[in-house]
Design a protein around this nucleic acid. Structure first.
Lengths: 184, 184
DNA sequence: CACTTCATTATACAATATGTGTAAACTTTC
DNA sequence: GAAAGTTTACACATATTGTATAATGAAGTG
């Protein structure tokens, strides 16, 4: 999996042959198939690994904070840290989902969960009267999804970025949608 | 090219074989190679076509408006219309650039130009004192690039979206970065 | 009309990739 | 040491990209 990760980052998907992966890992191509079933299976495993390393579970944790404004801040932060955990790899993986319908399922499933999290939080914000006026709840969800997406993080963060700096920028933008002014 | 476009949207990149493209277009595979040189060449042509159909030149036009605030508004609008012109196709094309270093060049070149446009406009905004305090010019450029990226548009717009509605949302967000309050 | 030029076709070929099958060698476990 | 499960080496089928070549056909020009 580590071999696959490195090759995927360096060569891209098209340049990633299971022959190379197997060689780099010091095993046979057949062994790779025994473990992962297919190239797609391998990618799935790599994706799961990066999600785990990036501590995805922190997203759910952040969303459960009782103060909804604080929850937004933490959710944005957890997202940034997740995306920063392996940027080059995520770029390939997320891109792949847009390119190949077969591969899409993995990412789509996680995005669905991310959306459910935000949708729930937006309902709480709405109940607390913290949504800016003239803004539908669904719109707010879409905006927050977009702001906390990998694509946005990737464009906002310079190569040597500190996730915290990006987080500050995102919160500033989110303030146009949600009233976060009570907090730093 | 139209065959390629349809197949790319329907099947994704991995499912797009030049055999299928040729058959759908009613020619031989060899003819496709005579015209486009390679699969990449074909994609390039398809990308150029969608950029032309989406009227990319309007971006440059918008950036030249003398009032910098008005220029921002128009540039955001032109971006939305560009991205809306063939969403399903752009999803594949933009994703592909993130997946495959070979393919990246096409998109990267356009992004570079888009960035130059924004960078110039941000300098004008800065000179007019319209940047929100505590914000570096490079940060502003990155934020505006992110807000007007295809990825953001694609996440913000519902399936049946009106580009103008998305544009309004984006301007609201951009207002956290640039003072646009003088305008509607 | 005959001639030339050019693109298209049919066909074959090489190279590379994915995925499967099988028997032999090797490890692990009991 | 024997049984069970992996890994290997090797062969094979299939699909795809890309190139080469001779034959075919459709222009336009004299």
């Amino acid at each position: 999996m580590e071999s696959a990760r490195q090759l995927l980052v360096r060569q891209g998907f098209h340049g990633l042959s299971l022959e190379d992966v197997a060689r780099a890992a010091g095993v046979t191509r057949k062994t790779v198939y025994n473990h992962f079933g297919s190239k797609l299976g391998l990618l799935n495993a790599v994706f799961d690994a990066v999600a785990a390393r990036g501590e995805v579970w922190r997203l759910a944790e952040a969303a459960e904070v009782s103060d909804p404004r604080e929850a937004v801040v933490r959710l944005v932060g957890a997202s940034c840290r997740l995306w920063a955990s392996d940027r080059a790899l995520l770029r390939r993986l997320v891109g792949l989902a847009a390119v190949d319908p077969e591969t899409a399922s993995v990412v789509v499933e996680r995005e669905r969960r991310r959306e459910a999290t935000w949708a729930h939080l937006v309902r709480r914000l709405e109940a607390a009267g913290l949504l800016r006026p003239g803004l539908a709840a669904e719109e707010a969800v879409r905006v927050l999804m977009a702001l906390t997406s990998f694509a946005t993080y990737d464009m906002l963060a310079p190569a040597d970025a500190d996730p915290a700096a990006v987080m500050a920028l995102l919160l500033r933008l989110a303030d146009g949608i949600v009233d976060l002014s009570g907090r730093g």
